[in-house]
Design a protein around this nucleic acid. Structure first.
Lengths: 190, 190
DNA sequence: GAAGATTGAGTGTTCAATCTTT
DNA sequence: AAAGATTGAACACTCAATCTTC
């Protein structure tokens, strides 16, 4: 089964999660050790990255979701997208998107306007100030990321990225939409 | 739930995240594509697992953090641990732990009592009801997990688990403590 | 003074209900 | 009826301040 080549890892045979899960699965062989560890590590890693980046970005008065939203908009054709498209690109619920858009609008980074061709939809456009804000945030976040991952072997990072990509395309519920301007399709509201 | 046999996912050279990040890095070569994608995929995957498991566990009136806490306690010697140990094992802040403990106590799954040997600390013990609750939740969560990961190649899952483990031990701030009963050491409060 | 735990304010998310437009 | 967006209640987390005990 698992070849487990853990080459360059002198001590530290097991970590915190190994112990918790390992103990449990030892007296309950029906459980899948890999799956249980994977879920826990996924949550753990995500929380750690979040925390690290958030703390570094806090000096700029930036929340974690802001770079993500602005980056989506920045790369959209005409720096404009629809609320629905941003929703599908984000992975959060529609209520969260409305919330984020209101705050971005309040700060002056975006403008909201009703789509004339389908008045149910809302078009979101990056303002000039929003454009430079986006550029600034991307740069800052990039620096923080490089610091955070500095101690992890490059090889591991690249393999992780690829494997996570495989996982996401396998389990992702829908998203035939590659994030476009204003295509009114696909289920929403989540 | 969702029969939806969309097994037609053969090609798919690039996904949602590839596009967003790829575009950006194309006009800004200083950025590290792998790192930017990795962070986004980590958040995305974690959120997806969370959502999927939460929805399945909702039928039992269970929040995601409950299995994690009970599992930690279940495997501790004497099914007893200290609040600080649970804190260090969890990855969340001390305020969150207090909050969780209060709700677990309110439901009758655990008991809190002051440590006689060091009255600053709080000892947490699994009750009998809590023990069977823990067993029930582990089983339910295991089933949900197996359903969730069903479409991902086994090989990928195992490699992910190992690589995430490498990442965590590399970036984790401290935790020389392997989760024990009540050792009053290490920084806390976060 | 420092460590362990608790509290309260602020933030952000989900979920269900609602309103408008198609 | 159904889709898109908004709203408000409930919940969980972080952060900083506080209180007790060492």
């Amino acid at each position: 089964v698992s070849p487990v080549v853990i080459h360059s890892r002198p001590a530290k045979e097991t970590d915190r999660i190994d112990e918790i899960v390992g103990f449990w699965c030892h007296e309950n062989p029906a459980l899948d050790v890999t799956l249980k560890c994977l879920t826990m590590r996924l949550r753990s890693a995500s929380r750690l990255v979040d925390r690290a980046l958030r703390q570094e970005l806090a000096s700029l008065d930036v929340e974690m979701w802001e770079p993500e939203m602005l980056l989506s908009l920045r790369q959209a054709p005409g720096m404009q997208s629809s609320a629905g498209a941003l929703l599908r690109a984000s992975g959060v619920t529609s209520g969260a998107i409305t919330n984020r858009l209101s705050r971005l609008e309040g700060s002056g980074w975006i403008r909201r306007q009703v789509d004339p061709s389908d008045r149910r939809q809302v078009l979101v456009t990056l303002t000039d100030a929003g454009r430079s804000r986006a550029d600034q945030l991307i740069a800052a976040k990039n620096l923080s990321e490089q610091r955070f991952y500095a101690d992890v072997p490059r090889e591991t990072l690249e393999r992780l990225e690829r494997d996570l990509r495989t996982l996401l395309t396998a389990v992702e519920p829908d998203s035939p939409t590659p994030l476009a301007g204003g295509e009114p399709d696909g289920p929403a509201h989540r």
